[in-house]
């Protein structure tokens, strides 16, 4: 039994109402071809197939829309197009490898969590790729809202307990090929966690284990500059989110200067007003 399956079964035992039912297929690294939904395009069809098994109850496009997450069915929506383009850009940059992308906001309420979630969703559109969104915004976490049970263990739980398994903190949210690590219990001194070797190990292990998996770190705003520096070191690319009508040039300049040019992928100008068509 894989670590993930173990974690899932334990979680089920603990909470009973876990959103996603625990699959009962073979051991870790054993290909489950019978239920595979995706063509062998990534070289890791077994991983994706296993995920698919655990996603027997997916959220409907309507539910996703309600949660503010894009869905490939709404391909006409400009937001869907934008995230797809952003994903393609990153994939092209990564040259076939997976990558760790830090999404941070210039200031509070920049919508960096929204961008991180949807960037993850855009990766998950591609049937050959999976996405893992880690909520690193410990002061103001948001990923737990995607989960039916907000009290599931998360990042801080893993970093605090030496014997905690990674599988225990990775949770499906009802989107195909999409997983999240919520922030976990609140901590008073979050910077301590990110500096720990365990955090680096976590990022490395989730990245190295599945090469088709893109990891999105939903970081704190740039005002928590210490955390951002550590997290940017752990990541391959950095996206700075600037919300329409919220940030000044000085703030943007400070943020841009704080991130190394090599890692800075660019700025995401978020929440540009759009008048919807109402019938």
């Amino acid at each position: 039994m894989s670590k993930i399956e173990k974690a899932l079964s334990r979680a089920r035992a603990e909470h009973g109402n876990f959103l996603v039912p625990v699959p009962n297929t073979g051991t870790a690294r054993t290909p489950v071809t019978g239920t595979a939904m995706v063509a062998d395009r990534t070289g890791h069809p077994e991983t994706i197939a296993r995920m698919a098994v655990s996603e027997s109850r997916l959220l409907s496009p309507g539910d996703l829309s309600q949660r503010g997450i894009i869905h490939h069915q709404y391909v006409g929506d400009p937001a869907v197009q934008v995230f797809r383009e952003l994903r393609t850009k990153i994939v092209q940059q990564s040259q076939g490898r997976n990558g760790v992308i830090l999404v941070t906001g210039v200031n509070h309420n920049s919508g960096s969590s929204f961008v991180a979630q949807n960037l993850g969703a855009a990766f998950a559109f591609d049937t050959g790729k999976t996405a893992l969104v880690i909520d690193c915004n410990l002061k103001n976490p948001s990923m737990h809202r995607l989960l039916a049970n907000a009290a599931v263990p998360g990042l801080t739980d893993y970093l605090e307990n030496p014997d905690f398994d990674i599988a225990h903190i990775i949770h499906p949210v009802g989107i195909a090929r999409y997983r999240v690590i919520p922030a976990g219990k609140r901590s008073e001194i979050p910077a301590e966690y990110f500096t720990s070797a365990k955090m680096r190990r976590l990022v490395d292990s989730v990245r190295l284990r599945y090469t088709e998996r893109f990891i999105v770190l939903d970081g704190p705003p740039m005002s928590d500059i210490a955390d951002i520096r550590i997290l940017s070191e752990l990541s391959d690319y950095v996206l700075i989110v600037v919300r329409y009508g919220r940030a000044t040039n000085t703030q943007i300049e400070n943020s841009v200067n704080a991130i190394s040019d090599k890692k800075l992928l660019g700025i995401v100008f978020n929440d540009e007003p759009r008048i919807p068509r109402i019938h």
């Binding site: 949660r67 894009i70 934008v82 850009k89 961008v115 992928l265 995401v268 100008f269 929440d271 759009r274």
Partner: peptide, 12 residues
């Protein structure tokens, strides 16, 4: 700095 994306408001 390049603009990676201009995300319009997503209406739920």
């Amino acid at each position: 700095v390049p603009i990676a994306a201009v995300v319009p408001h997503l209406w739920t």
